[in-house]
């Protein structure tokens, strides 16, 4: 074999792999728009803030669902844990740094959720899909019951009052219009998204996709499957914790609602709506979900749930791959399920 065609193939393979992780202009446009929207539509800052938080939470679910194939009905537990951690910390500091510092709150919430995620990952990664569903749901319910029981700490059904985070980075005060909140949440989302983007395109990320695709073969190659899954489960828990912390800090309250089942269900819907295993699906799905919610509930607040259910059913039956899948098909790109 001559050397030249081999070298050409090597270069081709190299370029092919490099192209996978390259930033494309629609991505850059999306993020530019996300930041610009706060300035362009200051009256919608609160909505943008909510979307960013939902998107981060959905992103964390996509990491385990889309990349590692773990179906969870109880991801809301980590969101709730993060929200209470940040809320209690902000309350303890009474609005002054260092304890009420938002960045500290995020880190503490992420770390707490990660610890619980790591501890519970040993339980979750056993058994089949049904067992996983039940164990995740069971763990979430246990946390809900705990929050309910220890109402002297969590504020019970009334919620945690007096959550007053300090200025962001000691510079920006949370305003009532939500402008700071929106910038803050979108920035955190962007940073964590970039990190997730690096991770899914890394050797670690590809090993997760390999495990999802064929765990038997992955083991035969020498992949410590359980350790990898525990790692991503822990990371996803941390992400969810940070999302919960953002909600607590930007809305200045935490109620038992953060641990409700519908949060886990909504988030599943967002991921499926946006497109599982795409990362951007979480962001696009969150925006679509929130706008749909606002649109439908402007007509019928009470029966929103019906339309939500209908959307789920239609999505599963007719829209495979969610919005991102649709975009990929429309632009003629090959689908990477």
């Amino acid at each position: 074999m001559s050397d030249t065609p081999l070298q050409a193939d090597r270069d081709k393979a190299f370029a092919f792999l490099k192209a996978q992780a390259r930033w494309r202009w629609p991505e850059i446009a999306l993020w530019a728009f996300a930041f610009a929207s706060i300035l362009l539509m200051p009256s919608r800052a609160l909505l943008i803030n909510e979307i960013a938080i939902l998107a981060l939470f959905a992103l964390s679910l996509d990491l385990i669902l889309g990349y590692a194939g773990i179906v969870s009905l109880g991801h809301g537990a980590f969101f709730g844990v993060g929200a209470y951690t940040a809320g209690l910390l902000a309350k303890a500091g009474a609005g002054a740094a260092p304890l009420s510092d938002p960045t500290l709150g995020l880190l503490a919430a992420g770390a707490t959720a990660a610890m619980i995620g790591y501890a519970t990952s040993f339980l979750v990664l056993r058994g089949n899909d049904l067992t996983k569903l039940m164990v995740t749901l069971g763990i979430a319910l246990i946390f809900q019951e705990l929050a309910n029981k220890f109402s002297d700490i969590t504020g019970g059904a009334d919620g945690l009052q007096g959550v007053t985070p300090a200025k962001v980075l000691g510079l920006f005060d949370f305003d009532i219009y939500g402008k700071t909140a929106a910038f803050y949440s979108v920035t955190v989302l962007f940073l964590l998204f970039c990190a997730a983007r690096v991770i899914v395109h890394s050797p670690f990320g590809i090993s997760l996709r390999a495990i999802k695709g064929n765990a038997l073969r992955a083991r035969a190659i020498g992949v410590p499957v359980d350790a990898r899954l525990r790692a991503i489960y822990t990371l996803a828990a941390a992400y969810a914790g940070v999302a919960g912390a953002l909600l607590a800090q930007t809305t200045a309250q935490v109620s038992l609602d953060v641990l409700e089942f519908h949060r886990s269900a909504d988030t599943l819907l967002i991921v499926v709506l946006g497109g599982v295993g795409t990362l951007y699906g979480a962001v696009v799905g969150a925006a679509a979900f929130k706008m749909m919610y606002d649109f439908i509930s402007s007509y019928t607040q009470q029966y929103w749930q019906f339309w939500l259910g209908l959307i789920l059913v239609v999505l599963v039956l007719f829209v495979r791959g969610g919005i991102m899948g649709l975009i990929a098909r429309l632009t003629g790109q090959e689908e990477r399920a």
Binding site: A13, F14, F16, L17, K18, Q20, A21, V198, I199, H201, S202, P203, F204, G205, I206, S207, R209, A210, G213, N214, R217, I221, G222, V223, R228, A231, R336, A337
Partner: peptide, 29 residues
Amino acid sequence: FLDFTPIETLGFALSEARGEGAQFWRRIG
């Protein structure tokens, strides 16, 4: 891995063999 390409499959197998499979901070390739 039906969703992978052969080059990704082999790159993955080699990374694991070299003990680099857990590296999450750099992209593949």
